[in-house]
Design a protein around this nucleic acid. Structure first.
Lengths: 215, 215
DNA sequence: TTGCGAACCGGAGTGCGTTCCGGTTAGTGT
DNA sequence: ACACTAACCGGAACGCACTCCGGTTCGCAA
């Protein structure tokens, strides 16, 4: 089937983008045709998102453009939300390395409270920069945001910081959820629509929220 | 159809009726057949939700049970989310009268900070009591929660209280959104699923959040 | 090289929310 | 009583996410 066989040496891209999160017992390696199709699908999806806008990114369209059946997309990405999250994956990875190993106050070295603030601000900026994709990822399937790898990572990161910043016995898991909740793309979409809220406003509001606790 | 015809003479006065110009804010009066169908639809929807569960509440099924076309449902309720919200309307109304005119600390008379706390707690209880319906209402359509009447009312209520409790210049609109955000049904569904969180935990967590500010 | 099973492939099929539109009816003015 | 029209009605049709399954391919081991 694949007539255009590359004469180049096997491309040196990332060895298997496998999950951002908890790898429990190695998910099994990916067959070469599967990997090739994943690449095609992502390329097609990115192309279509750029052309037709995110809301024009239908699964059938992507499948057609990638020369693949829709079943293949669902096996790889689970659902439409998974596909959109995959589109965000590259940015997400660099974001993760910034707050886990970058320079303070986002990275290690600063006070936990300052890191929490920097983290939320960075998230607000990221939301603004990739608003359409993030909104689509979040609304493509019910609960998609919370089930996603990135959410789990962000949550775990916040919990670690809050455990240092809050007295023992505090439910830092809930607190982390509560701090992430205002950064829901749907909520911010609503705030934009009704009150013209900007990323600057969001950050200021989050500071209000934090000043109480972390001042 | 409607056999009970009124024997009363045509009302003597009050020419009243429809304004010649569309009055923004005043919903046009509803025709009697429309009202009858609304009642039928809601009754059928409640019946089906009780029988098949909320996830079995499909629009086609409701239309069939109500003896009505699906178009009629959409004209009345806008979308599936609107229908589910309508199912919650009765409870919502009594809840609203409680926090607007009931006894303290939920109703007027208590300190604003205490009222905020009582309000959020009441919301958490309500969420627990009608979890399935609320989750369905929120996830039936993207952004349904924020576009809904109840959200606007809750938000306005919180803003009014926060305006009294926070120093001038605070963005109480954002703060209100931020306090309501953790009470998203989707988020709580996730917390239940992954950590077995209960309404008690939610309230304790919200108290943590508020203690900082409203000490 | 050959055999074999697990993993993968594609696309027809399904279910459901939503829209569209030709026909019908309630309510008003004459 | 009659005419007129805006609002309403039903349900066929549509778009799209997602599933299912018979056929194919990869990768390993003999």
């Amino acid at each position: 089937m694949d007539s255009r066989r590359s004469a180049l040496p096997p491309e040196s891209d990332t060895p298997v983008p496998r999950p951002l999160l908890p790898v429990v017992g190695q998910p099994a390696p990916e067959r070469v045709d599967a990997a090739r199709n994943r690449r095609r699908i992502l390329a097609a999806a990115a192309r279509i998102a750029a052309t037709h806008g995110v809301q024009g990114l239908t699964v059938d369209l992507v499948a057609g453009a990638a020369g693949v059946g829709v079943g293949t997309i669902y096996r790889r990405f689970g659902d439409r939300a998974g596909l959109v999250f995959a589109l965000l994956d590259e940015h997400e990875r660099s974001f993760q390395s910034e707050f886990m190993a970058g320079t303070p106050p986002l990275g290690p070295g600063a006070e936990p409270t300052a890191r929490v603030r920097a983290f939320l601000h960075a998230l607000a900026d990221r939301l603004e920069a990739q608003f359409e994709l993030m909104l689509a990822a979040e609304t493509s399937a019910p609960g998609a945001r919370y089930r996603s790898g990135p959410y789990a990572v962000h949550h775990a990161h916040l919990v670690a910081l809050l455990d240092q910043a809050r007295p023992p016995g505090t439910d830092t898991h809930f607190l982390a959820d509560a701090l992430l909740a205002p950064l829901s793309a749907s909520l911010i979409a609503h705030q934009r629509r009704t009150r013209g809220v900007t990323a600057r406003d969001v950050k200021a509001g989050l500071d209000d929220l934090l000043r109480w606790s972390l001042g």
